[in-house]
Nucleic acid binder design. Sequence first.
DNA 1: CTTGCACCTGCAGTCGCTGAAGGTTCTAGC
DNA 2: GCTAGAACCTTCAGCGACTGCAGGTGCAAG
Lengths: 150, 150
Amino acid sequence: MAGQTIGRIAAAADCKVQTVRYYESIGLLPEPVRSPGNQRLYGAATVERLRFIRHARALAFPIDAIRDLLSLADRPDQPCDAVDSIARTQLLEVEQRIDRLTALKTELERMIAQCSGGHIANCRVIESLGDHDLCVTDHGEEGGLGPPQR
Amino acid sequence: MAGQTIGRIAAAADCKVQTVRYYESIGLLPEPVRSPGNQRLYGAATVERLRFIRHARALAFPIDAIRDLLSLADRPDQPCDAVDSIARTQLLEVEQRIDRLTALKTELERMIAQCSGGHIANCRVIESLGDHDLCVTDHGEEGGLGPPQR
DNA sequence: CTTGCACCTGCAGTCGCTGAAGGTTCTAGC
DNA sequence: GCTAGAACCTTCAGCGACTGCAGGTGCAAG
């Protein structure tokens, strides 16, 4: 088993080749062995690791949380409280983002509903954007204010 | 009316001083007049403009959409269809983000619920992260895969 | 007149990639 | 064996929307 090339494992994990190299550069993936011509060659374990990372990213876990999850996954005899806690934290984050976006949705719907289709001088959308006090919800910050938590 | 300093208008719009300078640098705010000592001085119109921008950002409009909205707001005699359309697009984006996050939430809840509190070797959370096929929803991409649309 | 805060410019860093430039290696077909 | 072209290599810059810092200047109060 000679190992897979970077292109193959990127395809297997549905990501770009550069992304694999990026993960290696930040220490999420180990440095692989190289072919005589200096090309990276990966074993099955690294492919699995990459798929794990990609799935966690698709679930919006931040890289640092994934780093923690990976080091936990490497100690199968440990209790899984820590894993649970990371996942619960992530669930909370996602729920908070949904809540904030739902407030935005409400506000946008209200603004749009008030528009009677006239001219910009009387446009409720423009007016609402100019005056936060017209808002009914407390859509605090989502949309870039503060760290994005992607 | 001598004009407000940058610190005052930043406070009035609930943002950082640097952010105001940033908006100027990307052309969202006009270059203000300067005091004899080279400090920016703003009139009431710019303060309003800044508040408009901040509110639109709080509603997650991208900067480019805000640029369009501002130039529309400057032509009060135009029909407001274009404004409406930008707002509807934004509403759609927000709804799509909510949908994607809801799928993530479902998946996270499922993973967490399956965890029986044992050891990592049997941890369902770890296992689920390693195998995308265990997912019940099609949580495509939200969490950094693709442009963030903040 | 001094203290200390607010302001100035310019640049680096954030997060998680993505793209491009410019070069090397591998593989398939002839 | 040879050649074309795909896939690989390294390095660096850029995205969005800010934020922070360093090193310097202006200004207002006591």
